[in-house]
Design a protein around this nucleic acid. Structure first.
Lengths: 192, 192
DNA sequence: GTAGGATGCCTAGCACCGCTAGGATGTCGA
DNA sequence: TCGACATCCTAGCGGTGCTAGGCATCCTAC
């Protein structure tokens, strides 16, 4: 009956999410190079081909993980912004929260912003979670600022550069705070 | 005799460089995922194990390509800086030249700044080519500026963020100039 | 209650990857 | 000329992402 079908779809949806979280946990524990379809299948206690009945391939699994990440990032930035009453300080707080997110969840961050993807920032098919995260930056500027989207984009990019060079060990992480202070002082101080 | 040995070493050095340039050409033509040891060996017309008599592994080949790239980047930035007589405009020119380099040689840029590496920016074992490139940024600030190294590091990071997000298609490349202008206006205007 | 059909899942295998062991081949010096 | 050495290739290892094909289970319809 339909009840049976519903139960099956429910179980299937659960397994779908199980694969995503297992992939994320494995990546956060051992890095994305350790996330192979075999190890992932073993972890969810199914055979390899089951993964392909849920996702078109490994890329699609990474993409699903990243979309979960966008949601969490949006929430994280949102908390930082709303916890800062003074509007002039909001962008400071959001920037700090962003780098915090990147350094504390490096594998998740990699899936979101480093690994090959077809996700776009500003596009009709942009996942709403990503748009929400972006809007946390945009909201830090006055609504009558015609270039607030551009500002947000550049600040995001700059933070990304700092985050990713630090994560890959190319710049020393111990002076990260100084870089952030300088960046904020230069970019975030209430523009036109 | 020693002449024979010399000839052999010369040939060996040529083959060493041949491998590096072949890897780079293949990467620039089809991306790094197309650079496999088999295809590379076929391209240099030797068998696979020959690669391993020159390099400890594929990573080492990528590293060699990236060090060549650092040299070219330093030269490219140096030309931009010395072609700009007015000191206040030097940083503008160097920033533009940097993004130019990144967008015109995306595969090379990836090897230098995105792919996993053990190369550090500011470190005792930093390749001199990389140090030279970094110094092109540093030289744009007055020598009595105590924080010029930090400034250079942050500007580099911000440019890297813009370059890499644009290259991976996450931000649209057609508004790159606007981003650069904003970034330069904010970061490059003669600081303290 | 049972036959028939659809569905779900696993075993086995494909072509490819980075890397290496071991042997054939060719070159050099005594 | 012959032994020692260096050079280089064939073949193969264990891994990768992904898929074809068959088996078993479950639901449906008679």
């Amino acid at each position: 009956m339909s009840a049976i079908k519903e139960r099956r779809e429910r179980e299937r949806a659960q397994r779908h999410q199980l694969i995503i979280t297992a992939a994320r946990e494995l990546a956060e524990a051992e890095g994305w190079e350790a996330v192979t379809t075999r190890r992932l299948a073993e972890r969810v206690e199914y055979s390899q081909p089951v993964l392909y009945s849920h996702f078109s391939g490994k890329d699609a699994i990474v993409r699903a993980v990243s979309i979960d990440g966008f949601g969490e990032l949006a929430a994280h930035l949102g908390r930082a912004r709303s916890a800062t009453p003074e509007p002039g300080q909001a962008l400071h707080a959001v920037c700090r929260a962003y780098l915090e997110f990147a350094t504390e969840r490096p594998a998740l961050y990699q899936a979101m912003f480093v690994m090959p993807t077809d996700v776009k920032f500003a596009h009709a098919e942009t996942p709403p979670q990503l748009r929400a995260a972006f809007d946390e930056f945009v909201s830090c500027f006055r609504p009558d600022n015609a270039r607030r989207e551009l500002f947000a984009e550049v600040i995001w990019s700059a933070l990304h550069g700092v985050a990713v060079l630090s994560d890959s060990g190319r710049i020393p992480p111990d002076t990260q705070d100084e870089r952030l202070d300088f960046l904020i002082a230069r970019l975030a101080d209430t523009p036109s």
